[in-house]
Design a protein around this nucleic acid. Sequence first.
RNA 1: GGUCCCGUAGUUCAAUGGAUAGAACGAAAGUUUCCUAAACUUUAGAUACAGGUUCGAUUCCUGUCGGGACUACCA
Length: 592
Amino acid sequence: MSIVTEIKPNVQKVLSELYSYTATTSELTINTTKPEFEGDYTLVLFSFVKQLKKSPEILGQEIGEALIRNSPDMFTAFNVIKGFLNLTIADSYWHNVLQTNYSSKDFGTQKANNKKVMVEYSSPNTNKPLHLGHLRNIFLGWSIAEILYRCGYEVIKSCIVNDRGIHICKSMIAWQLFANSATPQSTNTKGDHFVGEYYVKFNDEYKRQVEELVNSGIKKEDAEKQAPIMAATQKMLLDWEAGNPEVMELWTKMNSWVYAGFDVTYKRIGADFQKMYYESNTYLLGKQFVEDGLKQGVFFKKEDGSVWIDLTADGLDEKLVLRKDGTSVYITQDLGLAQQKYDEFHYDQSIYVIADEQNYHMKVLKLILQKLGKPYADGIYHLSYGMVELPTGRMKSREGTVVDADDIVEEMVNVAKAKTEELGKVKDFTEAELKELYETIALGALKFFLLRVDPKKKMVFNPEESIDFHGFTGPFVQYTYARIKSVLRKVMDIKRAAINSGTLLKLERDLIISLEQYPSIIEQTITEHNPSVIAIYVFNLAKSFNTFYTEHSVMNAESDEKKQLRLQLCEMTANVIASGMGLLGIKVPERM
RNA sequence: GGUCCCGUAGUUCAAUGGAUAGAACGAAAGUUUCCUAAACUUUAGAUACAGGUUCGAUUCCUGUCGGGACUACCA
């Protein structure tokens, strides 16, 4: 139980005893005490002033005295400033926190809870390589899955691959036209990049053809339809839908190139999936919903035969669910896929990591499922995240301003290498160890950078400035860990006795207080679906440790008791850093 | 037009309605005979604007200005 949840019943008891007032837990506001005041945690008194008809000063005095009287083991001092009751928690309490948890590797995590949750993330198109936006998605999805897993959920990571449609045909057509049978192997190109090149070639050629037609006097709108390469693409899509063997073969071949490329990237950045869905298999799903929906009166049919749902009462619009030609649209497929996932896994929750441009779409999806009375509808959660933008604005593939995922990882690795060599601290590492270290630091920096911001908010990535290993970064936290391990390596053989007494110094105390908050931080992360809470926490913890470490020696502590205490502090800090970073998908190096 | 999101130091990000709005980078100045200086310490610097709600507002409400997303029988 966290210190805050322990303080609350004590306060409730006091309020009841002194004033016969019953306070609910949520009425009590308890914050950490600001550094400029004396105390560890602070009870905000203003909310009781009116009901209890006493001044904040008197209330604070009376409550403070009663708390110490009732629980001298927990509270040792208090002071009242304005409407704030600052409480000092007993050293013995903090000692106990440390003693109980310092060697635990899974402090803050939880036992199995028999809940099953699906996390769908990444969800790429198979016509181009992954970019920075995908990385935010992937790191977020992986992290939230890991956090839930470590907190007792059964987690199924899934991915819906957008492997069909007009955009896929575009790269296929361009390959037919321009590739001369070239392959990733023959050109020594990573498969997803190889296919992506043809997607770009398509657009270049398309633009050229449209321009040519416009110059010959055709209206732009018509030119866009008439361009031969576009007409060929449209035809290919029809052929694909008809199952034309030649087209299917090309499609299979090119997609396999892309998958081989994705696999390399996924492996390098540590992404994994238990279940892959392919849109080519799911795009016809969902039609059963149309029947059911019409029968239930949730959907209605227009004169032309198209089927709709009226969501105006919910503040949304009318939404099409079936075209007049009887084919399904995107939302229909998603209805079908949600059902298929449920049939397969019977999830309690289904989290979709999808960019915020689809907020409306996801709202509609959930709403329709609720209206259809699907038992799994309420468990659907859209983990919406903002776009990653460049200083110049939004990334646009057509303008070539997309930051490629593989490129940025490689660049980070190069910086990690250069910086490591410059510092020269690991000259005895083998080649393999160095390579691993560079990857650890590079991905640590990148993941931390993308995860430290609230997912809901859009963020800016500055290619020059974002590659930084100082300050609020992954490498800063990793470095703190490496330093601690360096100390601990030196005392491997020392037995650590239990330390239960002794006055804690300010910086020792600050560190324990911070460590104690870790479980609550994880809980907050889950309720908010927001890993940035952990990133911010773990950074502050590292900072807190560094301040302590600079000020107080561990090896040459004032007494053996202090030395033991600080070793425990070191070990617990290292464990929490490793754990927290692990929840973000970031490794921590023993040395760097 | 309608719906929704966002405007915080020069820049990138924080702040369950709580104290004097925190960090980081950048700028300026310091710290190493001592456990890793990828560190630590200090200084300067911000809530777009106008109202309202209340003991108290960056946070909630209204309006203005500015930015973005969505609003396809595209996915």
